[in-house]
Nucleic acid binder design. Structure first.
Lengths: 239, 239
DNA sequence: GAGTGGTCTAGACCACGGT
DNA sequence: CCGTGGTCTAGACCACTCC
């Protein structure tokens, strides 16, 4: 166990682990009990529980207790897709990524527009197939401006996640993404790549990511198998 | 001003209001400054700021400060679906809703579970077809607990939006919705109702809405034409 | 009344960003 | 170095649920 991990994060990890041995709607130990078990303050317990509540793993009822949230679907959540690997690992499968293509091309039309570049500016073009236990899950095309990420190599990307590379090597922080989620019938070719029947429905996610300076850094189209993925979100009505 | 509104909620409301006079990426007063301005503890300030951050209105940078999040304009978009009529009107078409069914039934299995009811508890069951310029757009089934909304009539719903009725007649406030977005191939029957070709892809949105007391008030499944709708969202990457 | 989550206080030290 | 947000403590009272 790392020493400088915040207490509440350790608590989150520990509770998340122990959730696996509970059933839906089981009651967790009360907040005051957790303070005794983990020797932390109640505030720390609540911060940790807030995290789990935000992720939809637990729910609280005033005066009654904290409970294990029912599982709505088996599918993996697409909405926090930055860590495909983590998500797949979390459900006990082995993730992998196959680079079907990786090269530098000049940006045209839509890509140039989305990345706020001039026509002809150079961009990385990559086509990736994501698999879980060697079964195809998602298929995506990404574009990144070369001038922002010089010396980006396929080799790096095969060793680390794209977002890790952008964060660590290129110091891109506080990224904001706009996502459009659509339903599409797969083409025969796409269906073949993803190993599903022709004309099957799929979730298409188009994402445009900008950094903290409002500069576009990535434009991606992803096709995800409709039988494996859900895009989960939460909305507040009072704004 | 209500007297028993939690301090942090008053703070949220007040800050949300003052955000309108800021520009994107402006810096807010620091947390310690806010404690002095509002005469509350720093913890209370942070709880309030957490709310605003969750809703995407602000973002924080360690060591620098708290900032106003960039503003976005919503286009025809499924993700703020509470006002189908407004959205359709906004693009210059005439919205209408056809009630294909409206009755009271007893909740079974999934519906009872999602609404946190006992099996057999009564629920309103309604099937609605939404049209724009008389062209079918969306098709949805909704369930609401009868015990929360006595005397809900089809007549009211045909005159006002569901959420307006819940808000004004039943005083439901600060609703939170969990949505799962999926891609589905339409059945032949569904395709016929929506006027698209058989096996067409569609966006399915399953929504569970709770009020400010954590009580489930609505469970809805909606099928939206894939050629007409997009589910748009935005996400921050740096948690 | 006892136990729960919800709210709140007044401190403290750490990690980070900029001067 | 100082000011920022991030984490954490040890209390307190309120609002709610159940018996």
């Amino acid at each position: 166990m790392k020493i400088d991990t915040p207490l509440y994060q350790q608590l989150v990890a520990d509770l998340k682990q122990s959730l696996t041995s509970y059933h839906s709607n089981d009651r967790l130990p009360s907040e005051r009990e957790l303070t005794k078990i983990y020797h932390v303050s109640r505030n720390t317990v609540r911060v940790a529980l807030n995290q789990l509540e935000d992720r939809g793993l637990i729910y609280r009822v005033h005066g009654k207790g904290t409970f294990v949230a029912p599982i709505f679907v088996n599918e993996t959540d697409l909405s926090s897709m930055y860590s495909f690997s983590d998500q797949i690992t979390a459900v006990g499968m082995i993730p992998s990524t196959k680079y079907l293509d990786f090269k530098i091309i000049s940006a045209q039309q839509e890509v140039a527009k989305q990345l706020n570049l001039e026509q002809g500016d150079l961009v990385y073009y990559m086509v990736r197939l994501r698999l879980a236990d060697d079964e195809p899950m998602m298929y995506g095309t990404s574009y990144l401006p070369v001038k922002l990420f010089t010396n980006l190599t396929k080799d790096q990307l095969e060793r680390h996640s794209l977002y890790d590379v952008l964060k660590i090597k290129y110091h891109q922080q506080t990224m904001l993404a706009f996502e459009d989620v659509m339903a599409k019938n797969l083409t025969d070719q796409q269906a073949k790549i993803l190993g599903v029947h022709p004309k099957a429905a799929s979730l298409e996610i188009i994402r445009r990511t900008i950094n903290d300076k409002n500069v576009a850094i990535e434009f991606t189209k992803t096709l995800a198998r409709a039988d494996k993925f859900v895009y989960r979100s939460r909305k507040y009505n009072d704004l």
